[in-house]
Write a protein that binds this DNA or RNA. Sequence first.
DNA 1: TTGTTGATTCAGTACTTTTTGAAACTTGGT
DNA 2: ACCAAGTTTCAAAAAGTACTGAATCAACAA
Lengths: 166, 166
Amino acid sequence: MTLKEGKDKFIQSWGALGSSWGINRTMAQIHALLLISPEALSAEEIMEELQISRGNANMNIRALIDWGLVYKELKPGERKEFFVAEKDMWEVVKNIIIQRKKRELEPMLRVLDEISSVDPESDEAREFIEVIREIKLFSNKADSTLDTLVKSDSNWFVGTFMKMIK
Amino acid sequence: MTLKEGKDKFIQSWGALGSSWGINRTMAQIHALLLISPEALSAEEIMEELQISRGNANMNIRALIDWGLVYKELKPGERKEFFVAEKDMWEVVKNIIIQRKKRELEPMLRVLDEISSVDPESDEAREFIEVIREIKLFSNKADSTLDTLVKSDSNWFVGTFMKMIK
DNA sequence: TTGTTGATTCAGTACTTTTTGAAACTTGGT
DNA sequence: ACCAAGTTTCAAAAAGTACTGAATCAACAA
């Protein structure tokens, strides 16, 4: 396989993977392109390489920066902005967990709290409250597990989980 | 809050959560409805409750069964099929992990293997291979971690992770 | 075999999300 | 103050996804 073929295949697959991970296809493709790019790229270069419009490139680059998956790099003397990807996979996964936890898990926890206040006036209501209580318990556990995971560093991950797997 | 309001809010929120988890909104809503339903429901009842078409209900119920999140329940004497949700959250999460691992992580691992065969003829190619090698290492680790997680039971999860959190 | 009840399929439609591209804005140099 | 190089925004268009409903299929009962 040639380098070009390999790169293209990687960008395509990373894009597909991203789109089932709450990161849209283009966003993931930009990330892939930057991951395998030895140097920082400008918006122009990204547009060119992925055949996308200026607006699309700009919006997705900013989103990647928001998610902490890409950094701006300013070259002295150059007005243009350049971009590099976070290349440590553990950091990448951590940042995705942080973002998705904030966007998805935390709002759900709030809703679960709210709906716990349903009047326990009927048997049905009491059953409902019980089901919600169990979901809340599980979700809180998941929430704190993720917090711990995110606070830990890469070596911890490798160590603990490798041991776990044996 | 009344029972009806609570139920509706739960169904809405679960639907929203699902749609960022590779489970479409309606699928997640059906799951939510079944979760908080004391008895098994028929397709008709689900259609009625969520105001969706027969086709939509049928397709999403089948998808939920595929994912192992809902079971068919046949009542003796009744021709109609009834459905119940898997209510153990740990089972739910496990099944989602299994499905998504199969659909997303495993194809990615295959692609990473393929593109490792790029000719290391230039410095650039060698750098590319190295980046891919690191991603592969991480992904394999994630893959086996998930395998272990999925093989373990609910108590293990509660025990180990609670300890981890302290 | 025919009628009835329920499940499934799928082409067309509705809805949602992403992308484009041109205009507006920003920044720094002259 | 003005220009040039670059960035950001956003309304409209395109692409992608989900939903509907009518037709079809399957199972059983009479």
